[in-house]
Each structure stands twice: as C-alpha cells, then as structure tokens.
Simulated assay, not measured.
Amino acid sequence: MGLSLTNIFQGYGSHFVINDLSIELGSGVIGLLGPNGAGKTTLLRTMATIMPPASGKILVNGIPVNDERSAREARSAIGYLPQNFGYDPGMRVIDFVQYAAWLRGIPGTAWQKETAWALNQVDLLSHGKTRMSKLSGGMRQRAGIAWAIVGKPALILLDEPTVGLDPRQRLQFRKIIRNMHESTLILSTHLIDDIEATCDRVIVLHGGSVKFDGSVADLSNTSRADLPGNTDLERGYMNFLPAEEQQL
C-alpha cells in the first residue's frame, strides 16, 4: 500500500487548515501527533477521501484520486475510524462490522470469517448479537476499531481510537496495532505512550504543516532537559511546538 499527498491545501471556505503538505506513506504504523487545532482530523478526512482537497494531488497505490469515482474505488481499501463515529443504535455488533465488510467490497462468502476475526481482535466476539445501544462506551469504541480493521484494509486511519478504553484494553489495542504492519496504519492520538509502544514512524503536525517526520527514536533524540515532559519522547514532541505552547 502506498499513500502519497503532494502540495495539499485543505480547509473550510477561505480558511486553510492544511497548508502545502506533502508526505509519502508506505506500510507500517505511523503516529500522528499535534495539539488540538493542528489539522490532524482534517488530514485524516482528506486521506480517507471524504474531503477532496482544495488543491494538490492524492495517490492511493499510485492511482490518482481526483473525482468521486476514483474516491469510491480507493475507499474499498481504506478502514477509517473517526473520533465520533455514527452507528444505528438498534444494529447488532456483528451486523455493524459486517456492514463495513460490505462497504469495502469483501465477498459475501468471507463476511462471517472476517467479521469474527475483527471481533475476536477487540475481544467482542461473545457480544456479536448485542445491540450497539447496549454497549458501554469502551465496548462501543472497540466495535469501532473492529469496523476499521475488518478485512485487513491496506490503509487504516484511526482518530483517537483509545478514547474510553481502560488500561488493559489499551494494551490489547497496542497488540492489535503491532500485528497490522503490513498495512499503512495512521494513528492520530494525544497519548504519546501509545505512539512509543506501537509506531515505526511519527509525524508532528502543527498549523497544518509537518514540523517533524521520522522515527520514534529520532523524535526522542530531539529532547531537551529544559522542556516539559516525563519522557524523552514527550520532551522531543514539545520541542516542535511554538515557544508559547511549551510552557505549562
């Protein structure tokens, strides 16, 4: 899987949230860090082909995404979990995940197997017949993760996926992520320890522009003792924020 964004401008009306952004993403787990308002969610929605860019080029596996037809074709290989995802409260968990399989064009003969795999990954296999409205917040979040990974899509985009998960469930989530390295998986989160535990690469976004793009170790190596943070990775991240945002 390859995802290429070149000179992307994206925003709402005349206000640009993403400014002339260019990145190349291959297989592996990529962490996306940045403060609120940095443009992370807008970037994920652009990558998911939900928001066509104001200008610039998007290539999915070398194929341009430049109209609704090509966007629909690209979506068959994309698993996207928004921060606040929608669902039919009366839908059973198994049907919710199977619907994602159908949307992705997975053959009907494989729905049962792929859905069972995804639900097993998030420890919800025994709750397949439970209505979505009856799930706790953490269980609903895990159902959303199953939605995103069913069928093992080539591109997986997760926006704050560990919100509502308890410590054990977060550890389980990290295990799932580490097993998805054949895909291009982008994890947007404020939890830097999740980045440290799972990611091969990390991108720091601020003001709609990439401020750092490299390995987790390289970001840790930018740490300075005078910066706030409990770990080298936290201090390295703070190093790429404006001086006024480095103060606590």
Rank of each mutant, 00 (worst) to 15 (best):
L5D: 06
N7P: 14
Y12K: 01
Y12F: 14
G13N: 13
S14A: 14
H15I: 15
I18S: 01
I23L: 14
G26P: 06
S27H: 07
V29F: 02
I30W: 07
G31I: 07
L32W: 03
L32A: 07
L32C: 06
L32D: 07
G34C: 10
G34S: 14
G34D: 05
G34K: 05
P35M: 12
K40G: 11
K40S: 10
T41W: 10
L43T: 13
L44K: 04
R45Y: 09
T46I: 14
A48S: 15
I50A: 09
M51P: 02
M51Q: 13
P52C: 11
S55E: 15
S55T: 15
S55Y: 15
G56T: 11
K57L: 14
K57C: 14
I58P: 05
V60C: 12
V60H: 13
N61H: 15
I63M: 14
V65I: 14
N66W: 10
D67K: 07
A71M: 03
E73N: 12
S76N: 13
A77G: 05
G79P: 10
P82L: 09
Q83C: 09
N84S: 15
P89K: 07
M91R: 12
R92F: 07
V93R: 02
D95R: 11
F96L: 11
V97H: 04
V97W: 01
Q98E: 15
L103Q: 10
R104I: 07
G105Y: 04
K113A: 09
K113H: 06
A116Y: 03
L119N: 00
N120G: 13
L124F: 04
L124N: 00
S126W: 00
H127T: 08
R131E: 08
M132V: 07
K134P: 04
K134V: 11
L135R: 06
S136V: 15
S136Q: 11
R142K: 15
R142G: 00
A143W: 03
A143H: 08
A143L: 08
A148S: 15
A148E: 05
K152H: 08
P153D: 11
D159N: 06
E160W: 01
V163D: 01
V163K: 00
L165N: 02
R170K: 09
F173N: 04
F173I: 11
R174G: 12
R174E: 10
R174H: 12
K175S: 09
K175R: 06
I176L: 12
R178L: 09
H181K: 10
S183R: 00
S188T: 01
T189I: 07
D193N: 11
I195C: 03
I195Y: 00
C199P: 00
C199V: 03
C199L: 04
R201Y: 02
V202M: 03
I203T: 01
G207Q: 02
S209G: 03
S209M: 06
F212A: 05
D213G: 04
V216T: 09
L219D: 03
S220K: 08
T222S: 12
S223C: 11
R224W: 12
D226T: 15
N230L: 13
N230D: 15
N230I: 10
T231P: 10
L233M: 11
R235P: 04
G236P: 09
Y237C: 05
M238F: 14
M238T: 09
N239H: 14
N239E: 07
E245P: 00
Q247Y: 08
L248K: 05
